[in-house]
Amino acid sequence: MEKTKDILLDWRLHLSVLVITVIAEAVGVIAVPIGIGSILLLPLLYAFVMGLILNPNVIRKVEGWMGQREVRAASPLIVIAIMPFIAKFGTIIGPSMEKIIAAGPALILQELGNLGTILLAFPVAVLVLGMGREAVGATFSVAREPNIAIIADKYGLKSAEGAGVMGVYVIGTLFGTFIFAILASLLATSGWFSIEALAMACGIGSGSMMAACSGALSHAVPEMKEQILALAGASNVLTYATGLYLCIFVALPVTEKLYDLLGRKEPVASNAGE
């Protein structure tokens, strides 16, 4: 690992990130409405794309500005750069603690339902699509920022698991509101679940997806709008509070165990370390 001084001396890297951040934030959020949902373009997505454009592995020509040295130096900074975000995230949960405690057992227990992704997505990813270790990162959670932080911390974002979680994250950010709006509308009209249950399920730990999901639900059942928004909001805050810990202690270990059972055996164990 490089010394602090060396990493700070990678000034081209930090200057690039600074410029990227300024451009991305200056452009701001763009919502592209598509029928019942909308595709949400966030500054962090532009930042990711601009980072890719400056990456010599993606565009050979930028090698004069940034080389493999900067690419390597960028990797440990991913985890460090997410720390202020996670700190802010904690300060969003704290004030709502009373609301969460008051929310009741159904609301708390349905958090376990977030493990449904492992039951549905993991077997398909590994058995049908033949994915390798990236399936662990892709399917253990709904791949929002805290989940990325867990994977970055445990495997590094440069790992196969990191590629999996980033892939689902990017698709979720682009199409998540759209997918949740469709899901909520379909299930609301199916009559399979009570509307209260569907409202609670909307809280999956993403503000925009929760808004799209509860918006679509209240569109389908307008007379229950207030109740839907309150339940979805409380559930979303609860997911922020519990999701990180549910993922660390349950979801990720369970996914790992399942991979041991069903997964492709990698030829060399060091693959996971790259």
Binding site: I20, L45, G51, L52, N55, I82, F85
Partner: peptide, 11 residues
Amino acid sequence: TPCLAYAGIAI
């Protein structure tokens, strides 16, 4: 945002 910029460069 800066985190994702680093992530793009680290690919």
